[in-house]
């Protein structure tokens, strides 16, 4: 732009003027960038949304072999009290059969409690398998009705289009029967 605007001028003055125009244009570009950023940033999560980032769940009412769905940051959190059979199944799978290899041990803090974000990693549906009447899919875990992804009893992807295992949120055991998510 600066080039086309510079008429034939004495060598020395010409380059100086080109340089000045370039510096001015660059400065203006920085200014425009600084003005655009507040608009873009305003679309990110607001402070009140960020504030609702932890939740506590009491585990004592969950019987062995059943599950509850808690809500954290507007997302369903699957908390499953696993049976010994489910734990053994999950631990018997060789890692090389997994699309997203993770040991079951690395996905739980206590073997009988599986806590994960109940959102299919494909396109965000809530997989079925929480209620006893739900289909659990071919791997005795969860089954996503949207596009047919199947997860095993450790929440790992085994079949279908989802690329990764069900995510594990940050959580900690406050006591034996209580966890804090977030």
């Amino acid at each position: 732009m600066a080039d086309s605007m510079a008429p034939a001028a004495p060598e020395d003055g010409g380059t100086r003027r080109d340089f000045l125009q370039l510096v001015t244009a660059s400065f203006a570009a920085v200014g425009v960038g600084a003005l655009v950023w507040p608009f873009i940033s305003s679309m990110n999560p607001a402070r009140d949304v960020l504030a609702l980032s932890t939740t506590e769940v009491d585990l004592s009412p969950i019987a062995v072999g059943s599950a509850i769905t808690a809500v954290w940051r507007g997302k369903p959190i699957f908390i499953r009290h696993r049976t010994q059979k489910e734990i053994d199944e999950a631990r018997a799978v060789p890692l090389d059969q997994l699309r997203d290899p993770q040991t079951d041990q690395s996905r739980v803090k206590k073997a009988e409690w599986l806590v994960m974000v109940g959102i299919c990693t494909h396109l965000g549906c809530v997989p079925l398998g929480q209620k006893p009447t739900d289909p659990k899919g071919p791997f005795d875990g969860w089954f996503c009705p949207c596009h047919g992804s199947a997860y095993d009893s450790s929440g790992r992807i085994r079949q279908g289009p989802a690329p990764t295992n069900l995510a594990i949120p940050d959580y900690a055991f406050e006591s034996d029967t209580k966890i804090r998510i977030g």
């Binding site: 990110n44 999560p45 607001a46 949304v49 940051r73 507007g74």
Partner: peptide, 17 residues
């Protein structure tokens, strides 16, 4: 995706925008 939603899931900020 978080930026599009304005939160951690499709929610009120998403509907508004």
């Amino acid at each position: 995706v978080t930026w599009l939603w304005g939160g951690f899931s499709v929610d009120n900020p998403t509907l508004n925008r």
